[in-house]
C-alpha cells in the first residue's frame, strides 16, 4: 500500500464519484479501492470545477533513497486529469501524450496535494487538454503536467478493453448519466 490518503481542506468541493464503480471487478491501478497494489486515489471536486486529491508514498515507491519515483507523480497526474475529463464530459478518454515538468523531487512519507483543471466542456469533440499540478505542504508547486486525451466510444472501449457487453453497457449508462447532469 502507498499510504495514500484523502483529506478535505479549504479547497474541498465534495467527493467525486467515478463512473467505474459500476463495474463489479474494477481494478484500476490509480483509482480502484479494490486493487490492493494500486494507489487507491480518491478524488474530490474543487469549487472551480477541477479535481483534487492528497498523496503520500511509502518506500515501495522509492527511486533514489528517500525520493518518490518520478513515474508515480506522473501516474497520479494522469489519473486525476483523465478522471476530471471523464466526469466533466461524460465520455471515457485515453491518454495520448503527457508533458511533465519536474521542479523538485517528492519525498517519501511527505504529504502532497494534486489538483487538475481543464477548459474542455461537454460537447467538445477532442482531443482534450488538461493540466495537473502537485504542490507540497508549503503550497509550492513541485510537478506540473499537461496531458492530451482522446475520447473513447463504446465501440472502441469494447474493442480495446476486456469488458463484457454487460460491462460496456453499465459504463455507458454511468457516463450517460454524467452527460445529463
Amino acid at each position: 500500500m502507498t499510504g495514500l490518503t484523502t483529506e478535505a481542506d479549504s479547497r474541498d468541493g465534495g467527493p467525486a464519484e467515478l463512473p467505474w464503480r459500476v463495474l463489479p471487478d474494477y481494478q484500476c491501478f490509480g483509482c480502484s479501492p479494490a486493487n490492493e497494489r494500486g494507489l487507491g486515489l480518491r478524488f474530490r471536486h474543487t469549487p472551480d470545477g477541477g479535481l483534487a486529491c492528497t498523496l503520500a508514498f511509502d518506500r515501495a515507491f522509492e527511486s533514489y533513497p528517500g525520493v518518490v519515483h518520478g513515474g508515480m507523480s506522473a501516474t497520479v497526474c494522469d489519473e486525476i486529469m483523465g478522471n476530471l475529463l471523464v466526469l466533466r464530459l461524460g465520455v471515457s478518454v485515453f491518454t495520448t501524450s503527457m508533458r511533465t515538468r519536474y521542479v523538485e523531487p517528492l519525498a517519501i512519507g511527505a504529504t502532497y496535494h494534486c489538483t487538475a483543471s481543464t477548459e474542455a466542456v461537454a460537447g467538445d469533440t477532442g482531443p482534450y487538454t488538461a493540466h495537473a499540478q502537485i504542490t507540497d505542504a508549503a503550497g509550492q508547486a513541485v510537478v506540473f503536467v499537461t496531458g492530451s486525451y482522446q475520447p473513447v466510444t463504446p465501440e472502441q472501449a469494447k474493442a480495446r478493453m476486456a469488458m463484457s457487453d454487460d460491462e460496456v453497457r453499465l459504463v455507458d449508462e454511468a457516463l450517460s448519466a454524467l452527460r445529463t447532469d
Partner: peptide
C-alpha cells in the same frame, strides 16, 4: 535553479507551450 524551473513551468502553462 528550482525557482527558475518553477518559473519556466508557470510560463509554459500561461502560454500553453513547451
Amino acid at each position: 535553479s528550482v525557482k527558475v524551473l518553477r518559473s519556466v513551468a508557470r510560463i509554459e502553462r500561461t502560454y500553453d507551450i513547451e
